[in-house]
Design a protein around this nucleic acid. Structure first.
Lengths: 109, 109
DNA sequence: TGCTTATATTGATAGATAGTTGATTAAGAG
DNA sequence: CTCTTAATCAACTATCTATCAATATAAGCA
């Protein structure tokens, strides 16, 4: 972590916040294997179209994804592969967390 | 990112959410160089005591930090160094984001 | 027993935002 | 021009949570 001023804490927090919503993680997961349209993504995630569009724009604004317009459809794709590294790191933490909990259970049981 | 079920998206999102609050990032930053008490951390971050305690407990619950009680004071420390890697990755993204914006400005200007 | 200090907890409030609904823009097809 | 389809925008609601104030717990000391 870089030296943390109040301003940079805000920026970093905002970036984490973009990944702190299950729906947006599902969108990123759906984009793993290539470009998809808003409609595709709405179908795949089971979310409403307006909602899907809004989430995509937030991820776009944060630079995690990019888009390309073709006629009336908009194609979204992953722009920053680091997002998957982030998720892997977090998942590693979750593994450790589960392990800790298992140990606690064993100790108590 | 692991294969994403609805349940795991929730867990991962929750973990990101723990890092999505500026105050908690400041706490983690303050803990970079060793153990500190709740009071120390409240002073250093300028937050109220109750608020500080609550944030610390959330970070504790997520496994990012650990604690040790000594008399009436509680000493907190970082338990999962991955948190700093996460921040670095996110900061990298921020660098790219800034670069993108600079390019846009040049293109427009 | 009180008294003090350090944390934790509880209750209340204000602000943010995910999701829904309905309107609007925009691009083809007939 | 009209109809359809795709996406975005705007307004609203409901939920969540960061923060604060007040209280409670708990340890150490007089």
């Amino acid at each position: 972590m870089i030296e943390l001023t109040d301003a940079s804490a805000d920026v970093i927090a905002e970036r984490f916040a973009a990944l702190a919503v299950p729906m947006r993680l599902r969108l990123l997961n759906a984009l793993r294997r290539g470009e998809k349209s808003v409609g595709d993504l709405a179908d795949e995630t089971g979310a409403g179209q307006a909602n899907t569009s809004k989430h995509l724009q937030l991820l776009l604004q944060q630079g995690f994804i990019a888009r390309r317009k073709e006629g009336t459809t908009t194609w979204y794709r992953v722009a920053d592969p680091a997002v998957y590294e982030l998720c892997s790191l977090v998942c590693g933490g979750i593994e450790e967390d589960l392990e800790r909990r298992r140990k606690l259970l064993r100790r108590r049981g």
